[in-house]
């Protein structure tokens, strides 16, 4: 078969909404784009453990502590599922870690903001996980099989994350003056970064078109962003809190909320490494990895010794 006929087979599958599997032929840029997107997604889960992990030791009740711990652990699991999906494309997890640690690979910028109060656990669960779910649900039908299956698992587990976040916010919003203030403060700080999570505006998102064609992206950044704003503004009402956007108003004609201008300078500054916590987050990941090297080596050495011993026994 010629490359052209392989490519035709691949395109036919895309058109018929069939899945592409690891051993199927695929164009190089499909493979590359997928590796970039899936590993970036996996890195986001792993780095995302840090801002919330911050509060595990300080959670205000035993129940909250257990829930938060289980939630942060889930994020580790999600990272693992996604790394595994990327590994089917011919890259190792170690290589992906190396790309993260050297700054070659990106992760979601939202995790470069600090978690300074307990209410941030609520805001992250509600807004950040909310935005993530909006991104992820369509990916359950993405064209690459292992990625789609990983996302199905992630979305299933993720559903409790947003609920626990909203529950924290609701408890605070219904609580004392101080608690309400804490909740509003968290909303003020996390609102805009959450909106930015959907990525640059469509007219400024160069890879979007190809990703849509490959069905590794199913809605544009702005479509998802609008959906998020519409849903979240309503939820804010239930909390009795105020969205920190004076330009926010319902547009009858569009059937959507209009929202204020996004500060893209801030967005690009954080992407380029100048967010409040970029250095700390990367440092924490690198430290964990480097400190773990002797542990990983020891486990391999032990496994090797065992194998040698049992083969000697068999020989004897």
């Amino acid at each position: 078969m010629t490359v052209q006929s392989f490519e035709k087979g691949f395109n036919d599958k895309l058109d018929k909404e069939l899945t592409i599997e690891p051993r199927d032929w695929m164009p190089d840029d499909y493979r590359k784009t997928l590796i970039r997107q899936i590993s970036q997604h996996a890195h986001s889960e792993i780095v995302g453990m840090l801002p919330e992990g911050n509060w595990i030791t300080r959670a205000p009740s035993l129940r909250r502590k257990a829930v938060l711990l289980a939630k942060v652990q889930d994020e580790g699991g999600h990272g693992l599922y996604l790394y595994s999906a990327a590994e089917t494309l011919g890259i190792t997890r170690d290589e992906m870690f190396d790309q993260l640690h050297t700054g070659k690979a990106k992760y979601s910028s939202i995790f470069n903001y600090p978690t300074t109060t307990w209410a941030d656990m609520g805001a992250i669960g509600w807004l950040v996980d909310g935005a993530a779910i909006m991104n992820q649900v369509p990916l359950c039908r993405t064209s690459y099989g292992p990625y789609a299956r990983a996302m199905v698992r992630v979305c299933k587990e993720e559903s409790f994350h947003q609920r626990q976040g909203f529950e924290i916010m609701l408890t605070l919003a219904k609580g004392t003056e101080q608690q309400k203030k804490m909740a509003q403060d968290a909303l003020n700080r996390w609102w805009w970064p959450s909106i930015m999570m959907f990525g640059p505006a469509d007219d400024n998102s160069p890879n979007s078109e190809m990703s849509m064609r490959y069905r590794i992206k199913r809605f544009t950044n702005d479509e998802l962003r609008q959906k998020f704003v519409d849903v979240t503004v309503e939820q804010t009402r239930i909390l009795g809190l105020e969205v920190p956007d004076k330009d926010l108003k319902w547009n009858e004609e569009r059937g959507h909320y209009d929202y204020g201008k996004i500060n893209w300078d801030e967005f690009w500054a954080v992407v380029k490494g100048n967010g409040p916590c970029n250095k700390e987050r990367l440092e924490a990941r690198k430290t964990a990895w480097e400190n773990g090297a002797w542990v990983r080596d020891a486990a391999m050495a032990h496994s090797q010794k065992r194998k040698e011993r049992s083969s000697k026994k068999e020989a004897a």
Binding site: T92, D94, E95, R296, M300
Partner: peptide, 9 residues
């Protein structure tokens, strides 16, 4: 290239 000691899959 990265680490010959990566745990097997």
């Amino acid at each position: 290239t990265v680490n010959k000691a990566e745990w097997p899959l």
